[in-house]
Amino acid sequence: MSEKLRSIEIPIIITAICTLLQVIPYYFNIPVIDQASAIERDWMLLIVNMAVFVGVISIGQVHGRKIMRRRDNWEYSVVLMVALIIMAITGLPIESIGLGLDNPIYNFLFINVMTPLGSTMYSILAFFITSAAYRAFRARNIEAALILVSGTIVVMSNAPLFTSSLPFLITWKNWIFDVPNTATMRGVMMGAALGAIALAVRTLMGIERGYLRGGGAD
């Protein structure tokens, strides 16, 4: 019995059933299946939310081991674990004892630590992206020149310093977005859609099994 439960066919069948449960109501009007499909979608959200501790356990394993064995820079792992524990505990949805999303410590950490850290992490990329642009935007051939010209026009057209004296840059930018950018994105989107459909059909048929790997048996 145990061997049968372990067989790879069971998750493949579950995948196929779940997929068909979503696809069928889109093409056929069967109220029962439509209802089951809606419940399945809500279920998926609950199930995905239940996975939250997978990351916590993984982080605990990695950093816990680092702290226990006093490896290089283990002090930072302590900082990470303390930050995680304080944020998670103060945000627990138990309002009766003062915890939850309205807890002052949770709010302090969210507004004054997490938000500035998040936006600064993204903004620091401005320096690296500029350095990458300097290296990439060299007109060595027509293709590279096109990247350089269209990128420069887009950047300049959003800077009042240039558009005040060169207002036609805005028209040029609009044309770049309306024609070559639309053509590129449409082509990319349709190509990606075909790929996604092919992958979905392969998974539905049980040909694609990559997501089921791991655990020592395939």
């Binding site: 959200l45 939310n49 990351g55 900082v79």
Partner: peptide, 27 residues
Amino acid sequence: FRFAEHVYAGVSVGYAVAFNLDYLRDQ
């Protein structure tokens, strides 16, 4: 930087835990 980076990782995971549990409770 390393200190801030680890604090960011910690609070982000802590935030995800709190947010997801809040979602489950609200549901």
